[in-house]
Design a protein around this nucleic acid. Structure first.
Length: 113
DNA sequence: CCACTGACGAGTG
DNA sequence: GCACTCGCCAGTG
């Protein structure tokens, strides 16, 4: 194949990865991209997230940027507030700057058992 | 086809 | 730690 991945398949693949993130954990766009076989294409993950509904089967709120911060969706910070509340309800702690400690809450697919 | 935009990331100063 | 720049790719006009 000339294409590394198919556009539509990449979206579904991204969603499949996100759904594997356990409660109380977060993952970065770059991490999802890497797991989905789209290393270096983190922006594509963000684009896929943008297409998700606020109330869906995909735990989109567990996906944050590499800075440990919640990225703003379109229009305003309203959704970011909801995202933070959802994460806090799962036990994820935010610091004064609205930032999550990736060293503590970053999801690891599996680290030598 | 070209220009602009968008839930990003890494590098530089 | 923050601001700026470049790279990446898909969607829209």
């Amino acid at each position: 194949m000339t294409r590394v991945v198919d556009p539509e398949s990449s979206y579904q693949r991204i969603y499949a990865i996100v759904r594997k993130i356990p409660p109380g954990r977060v993952a970065t766009y770059g991490q999802i991209a890497d797991l989905a076989g789209l290393a270096g294409h983190a922006r594509q993950v963000g684009y896929a997230m943008a297409a998700l509904p606020t109330h869906g089967a995909v735990p989109w709120h567990r996906v944050i940027n590499a800075q440990g911060r919640i990225s703003m969706r379109r229009s305003g910070p309203g959704d970011s507030i909801v995202q933070q509340q959802l994460l806090e309800r799962e036990g994820v702690r935010f610091d004064g700057g609205g930032r999550v400690s990736l060293a503590t809450f970053r999801w690891r697919k599996r680290r030598r058992g």
